[in-house]
Design a protein around this nucleic acid. Structure first.
Lengths: 249, 249
DNA sequence: GTTTCATTGATAGGATACAAAAAAGCGCTT
DNA sequence: AAGCGCTTTTTTGTATCCTATCAATGAAAC
């Protein structure tokens, strides 16, 4: 919609705006709010994000908004073009592939390091995330589903213990969420919680090789479900308007 | 104030010309200038980076400096503490280890993808970088050595073809430069160009496994030369002042 | 009727002003 | 003389303002 008309249409931040409260109106808060909105697809790819507008919504000056936007841009969730402003990013098919490839690299290493370190507590925490994942998926609107789904993967990286790789993965998961929103075929979930449950079983075993393979396969399956290869060739405008052509020709 | 005679708007690039730092006065330019200074150890770890100070040096307002500093912070080259300003980061031993571990993960994948794609042109470009590396190393002050050394690794990632992984590696190489500056023992180069020459030979062969192993070993050797394990335990103040204690006791 | 150019309206980039927080300096008290 | 609390100073955080730039629209020329 990119509606330049929504001056006061903020869903939740209403309380935030009035109370000069903590969570919502700092640059971190705005960053989170926008990122969440992107993940939950309330902000579709290509939506313009004007500074003034956001500033009014969160009742802060553009200065603060800009900080949040630049941070989002550094994580490739929004595109900023000089003098043209920010918009929700629209990752290309190529980029989407690279993100998945990068995830395979990092998460394979993650699993390899995590499996030998797995304790019962870790296992429980993962199991709880699978449950939340499951619950969120059942929920009417899967508002938080993507979040929990990502949390499962991130938890594994946490167990692996390398903060650097974990932060890379965090970024990749964010980008993946955006990609899924952009490319996911209708009514077809890209990353099922069932696979996470299976994965958990293998992760808690002692076969590191098998666990790594399972994770890589899982990621490959997620990518596959997006059907990126079909969109590889550029969009054929003629084909798209073929029906119109039929009626007009 | 920053400028000499500018009360109102900025006359585009006037001030930059005076400093000979053409292009040095944009946020990108300042970012590069500070990053370079960190890599070349002209800015040691812990150096405070006050905003107005830098603003005066580059003859821009704090706004632009802040943008550069926040970007540097997002790449972990500087630390920004709320209300306390920015300083050149001092990565811990733990962090240093994690950076190297992450590099092993990413560069192993990089090599694995790059070797099968290696063309004579790629080979030449790598060879040229090894040469520059060598030349810079011979040079009195190894001002640019770290840069070329990093460029070799980055070029491999470029050949591999995944831009996402390449950008991660770019960040890691920057952090590695800082780490080397911080931990490198005196007169002992952490990452010799000779190893790069050897590596190049193996990379141009067809044995992917061997190439991956060689890269991982190379990185492990670099890390080892820093002697991080010796600094693993936290700094023992008593031991440091033991000589003083001897003389005073 | 189409193309080109100028004006206008909107929005990002950047500088400055002001407020708040921390650090440093200073005097006072014990 | 040493410690403590207040004041001053420095530096960051945020708001606001000005200007450069871009796109969009309308007018003029072809």
């Amino acid at each position: 919609m990119a509606g330049t008309k929504r001056t006061r249409a903020a869903p939740v931040d209403h309380a935030a705006a009035l109370e000069g409260e903590s969570g919502g109106s700092t640059d971190q808060g705005i960053y989170r709010a926008i990122a969440d909105a992107i993940f939950e697809q309330r902000l579709p790819s290509g939506t313009k994000l004007p500074e003034d507008n956001l500033g009014e919504i969160f009742s802060v000056s553009r200065t603060v908004v800009r900080k949040a936007l630049f941070r989002l841009a550094s994580e490739k969730l929004v595109d900023i073009r000089p003098n043209r402003g920010a918009m929700v990013a629209s990752p290309s098919v190529e980029e989407a592939r690279e993100v998945f490839a990068a995830r395979r690299v990092i998460e394979a290493a993650s699993v390899e390091a995590a499996v030998p370190r797995m304790t019962p507590e870790h296992r429980d925490r993962l199991a709880r995330l699978v449950d939340k994942d499951h619950a969120a998926h059942q929920d009417s609107a899967r508002r938080n589903w993507i979040r929990y789904s990502g949390a499962f993967h991130l938890e594994i990286a946490d167990i692996a213990g390398n903060q650097v790789l974990k932060s890379f993965l965090k970024e990749l998961i964010g980008r993946t969420s955006l990609i899924i929103g952009l490319y996911e075929p209708m009514q077809r979930t890209a990353c099922t919680h069932d696979e996470h449950a299976e994965l958990l079983d293998i992760l808690t075993g002692s076969d590191v090789e098998a666990a790594v393979t399972a994770m890589v396969d899982h990621l490959r399956a997620c990518e596959q479900r997006l059907g990126l290869e079909q969109r590889n060739r550029e969009i054929d405008l003629r084909e798209i308007f073929s029906t119109d052509l039929d009626s007009t020709a």
